[in-house]
Computed example of a mutant assay.
Amino acid sequence: MIPVFDGHNDLLLRLLEAPERRETIWLTGEGKGQLDLPRMQAGGFAGGFFAIYLPSPASHDDADLMAQMENPPYALPLPDAIPFSDALAPAIAAAGHMLWMERAAKGAFRICRTGAEVRAALKEGVIAGIMHMEGAEAIDESLDTLHVFHAMGLRSLGPVWSRPTLFGHGVPFAYPSSPDTGPGLTDAGKRLVKECNALKVMIDLSHLNEKGFDDVAALSDAPLVATHSNVHALCASSRNLTDRQLDMIRESRGMVGLNYAVGFLTETGIKDPACGWAPMLRHLDYLIERLGEDHVGLGSDFDGAEIPAVLGDVAGLQGLVEAMQAHGYGEALVRKIAHENWCSLIERTLGA
């Protein structure tokens, strides 16, 4: 099998929502979701970014809104911001679940904090986990809790998950729509970027609006990274990246991870799980042409999105590898997309 390193997953949310079942969710699987330890091992999942993500308040019906994405065009209202006082405890709990995962896996899973640690885990056949925060609601304006989470192992952070935060504004779920949907980073957001640079915490641009993207590009001394985003020219979702943004990522020696969510893949924006491999390969072709083959990877959004049925779940990753090979990608390019580009990017951002 060719090992696959993944730019984004939401397994921690499943643990956060059902902590009483975390042993079966993680260690043995329960026939639900898209990720668990046995299926990761079966599919050649070598590691990835594990997101601390907080669900929207109960008053905001995510399921109802996501159902509206079945029939483009759509423009879904964004949830209200989550106050820091409400965000901190569940975010700490999610981080705690990831620390527990490492202990419970008894050597099969390891939290990594540097590029060298990721490389070592892959060499040893241990699944490498990088702690990520998707939406910085649990970071206070003084940034003190950023240092606390960093001490826990946090090495990647997205200032927003579409909802506004103290730090910036995200894109709504809209099709067709430009990602230019609001103002840029706040003053606190600009301080956050600089402090993340100082701590070698990677800044994730997925979900951030265009003006915020530009502010990060102007301020950051690190490569620009979108862990789970696709091509706006092929699917005109506000969540996807324009050619101008892709060019800026290339110039920074950054990275884009292909998002498997069908609503961000299909040309019509329709969530069609029967779409097969073709939309994924079209986006990969475009990303390779625009960014170069050293700056493209995979960013599944497992456990956070509806994905092509032909892939199914994490156990089907070698099917994607085979689809890339059948599409004409040579062995060297497949290995770059599958894991080598992420390893190199992590070394450039987190340190060797």
Rank of each mutant, 00 (worst) to 15 (best):
I2T: 15
F5K: 00
F5R: 00
H8N: 03
L12N: 02
L16V: 09
L27P: 12
G29M: 05
E30N: 15
G31L: 10
K32M: 12
G33R: 06
Q34S: 10
M40Q: 06
Q41F: 04
A42F: 05
A42H: 04
A46E: 01
G47A: 07
G48N: 01
A51Q: 02
D62L: 10
D62Q: 11
A63C: 07
M66F: 13
A67P: 04
P73K: 11
A91P: 08
M98W: 02
M101K: 00
E102Y: 02
R103G: 06
A104Q: 11
G107S: 03
C112K: 02
A116E: 08
E137T: 11
I139N: 10
T145C: 09
F149C: 00
M152H: 05
S156V: 01
L157M: 09
L157F: 05
W161G: 10
S162M: 08
P164I: 03
P164W: 04
G170M: 11
A174I: 03
D180L: 15
G182V: 11
K190G: 14
L199R: 13
L199D: 09
D204N: 03
H207N: 06
F213H: 01
A217K: 15
S220N: 09
H232D: 10
D247K: 15
R250H: 14
V262I: 15
E267K: 15
G269D: 03
I270T: 13
W277D: 13
H283Y: 15
L284R: 05
I288K: 10
R290Q: 14
H295F: 10
G297K: 00
G297W: 00
A305Y: 02
I307H: 00
Q318D: 13
V321N: 02
A323V: 10
A323S: 06
M324A: 12
R335I: 06
A338R: 05
I346F: 06
